[in-house]
Amino acid sequence: MFEARLTQGALLKRLLDSVKELVTDANFDCSETGISLQAMDNSHVALVSLSLRAEGFNPYRCDRGFSLGVNLNSLNKIMKCAGNEDVITLKADDSSADSLCLLFENSSNERVSEYELKLMDIDQEHLSIPETDYDATVMMPSAEFQRICRDLMVVSESVTIDVSKDEIKFTAEGELGTGNVKLKPTSTIDKPEESITIELGQTVSLQFSLKYLSNFTRGTPLSDQVMLCLSDNMPLLVEYKMDIGYIRYYLAPKVGD
């Protein structure tokens, strides 16, 4: 028996919205500790890793670990039927998990809707992501990162990210010319969500596809801050942290000429 009730249903709507462009089918791995998902895009350039802790649900029940194979487009269509204020409950009888039940209850509980999503068999290779202590770890407002990606997209498909002790610089070069955005660390004590911090092991400079980075910024509504972790010749980690868990995106670098 599997049951997970999330009072903040909007969170689940946003989470699915932030992965739907990247991944079409994925396995939700459910265990007594919570729900996780790991999936790559078709071109194996980007990977999303989602983790929601059992404590964030009330109640949460998962008698034994199992996987829910889901077509994310279909799940998204059903999630569109949930109101932003609804409480969302996921249920599956783990034995013959051939469908996932979704319950949407509105706050005054006089409107309850129930949907059944047919599950699929998805054999997806799992990647082992090595624990890395990164050359550079940058924290910044998530809206700022979203804007930088959107702005520099007008110049080029690629962005070079340079991190030094007291600056992170995003540079784009294209047909029309060039553009760059430089951010300096700030420690606005009164508004921590607006702060920019740089933890530097050593300077690092890497190039990435802005198409993918812009896609990752669909996670912006999930958190005020975004964490960027970079190491030479390693995939970029973009993390949006929530009370209930996190969503992490990994992006393989582009190798300059």
């Binding site: 990647l127 995939p235 190798v255």
Partner: peptide
């Protein structure tokens, strides 16, 4: 244009 690497160059399959 520069060449896009694959994650499989960096992360091993389990």
């Amino acid at each position: 244009d520069s060449s896009q690497k694959s994650l499989l160059n960096f992360f091993g399959k389990i």
